[in-house]
């Protein structure tokens, strides 16, 4: 009962924070330099893990699909299978789970320590709205960087698959790439970019909310960090299901 109450309460508070952020999104002052800094820290800083994640996921996908396809004699379609899985599903979800772990936790920890050391209060006392100065730059940074990193993850995955296809199942590069290209239709790509935009927003707003609602000293900061990762990961996976359902009902259905 308490858990249910807490969940509903937190969802309500997150919605409120979202509403406050959206309302003041285009109202001056805009903290452009803060936005750029966050893009660098949150986005560029995550490049390395996304490169690794993408490459190995693509490689594993190629191994598994080639193995299955072999039985039906369709190994020349490995590229399409790898690319479709990546663009539709694994690229967005894995990228954003990585971001939830690396970036969402960082946001919660940073804002949480600022709460605990009264820096947020000092900010308010000096006439700054923390939502404008801290929350909005992080939301915008992730709205832009999550799709960008997803694209990079997809590309690296396709290349990782290529490497496996060429070196393990002795496929010609041209066969793999031609097959992979068939997966890259306009609708697939739109669907594959919509997801990380939504997920990026979720990660930013959950991280900010958990950080700003920190209570109880350094222990509280730890709790906020953990909670931010857990809640945003679960939300990412849950919302992924909803978006996939929506996409299949609209632009991705085969009929």
């Amino acid at each position: 009962m308490n858990l249910l109450y807490n969940t509903i309460y937190q969802l309500q508070e997150i919605t409120l924070l979202t509403w406050r952020a959206l309302r003041s999104l285009f109202r001056p002052p805009m903290y452009w330099s803060e936005m750029l800094k966050q893009m660098d820290v949150l986005g560029f800083g995550s490049l390395a893990i996304i490169l690794l994640t993408g490459t190995f996921t693509g490689g594993v996908l190629a191994l598994n699909s080639a193995n299955t396809l072999q039985r039906f004699g369709f190994t020349n379609q490995t590229g399409e299978l790898v690319a479709t899985s990546l663009i539709r599903e694994l690229g967005p979800v894995l990228t954003c789970l990585m971001l939830a772990g690396r970036v969402g936790s960082g946001i919660a920890a940073e804002l949480g320590s600022m709460i605990v050391s009264e820096q947020i209060d000092a900010m308010r006392a000096l006439g700054t709205d923390p939502v404008k100065k801290l929350v909005i730059p992080r939301i915008i940074a992730l709205l832009l960087m999550a799709p960008a990193l997803t694209v990079i993850c997809d590309l690296m995955g396709i290349l990782g698959g290529l490497f496996v296809a060429v070196s393990q199942i002795f496929q010609a590069t041209s066969v793999y790439m031609a097959s992979a290209q068939r997966a890259m239709t306009g609708n697939e790509i739109i669907g594959g970019l919509l997801k990380p935009v939504v997920f990026g927003f979720i990660i930013a707003i959950v991280g900010c909310y958990m950080g700003l609602s920190t209570k109880g000293g350094t222990v509280g900061v730890g709790r906020a960090t953990t909670r931010s990762v857990v809640v945003s990961s679960i939300l990412v996976i849950f919302v992924d299901f909803l978006i996939t359902k929506l996409l299949i009902a609209t632009i991705l259905g085969y009929d």
């Binding site: 050391s117 009264e118 820096q119 209060d121 000092a122 900010m123 006392a125």
Partner: peptide, 9 residues
């Protein structure tokens, strides 16, 4: 406001 613990950024 001068905060008790400083509250410096």
């Amino acid at each position: 406001m001068v905060f008790q613990e400083g509250a410096l950024f």
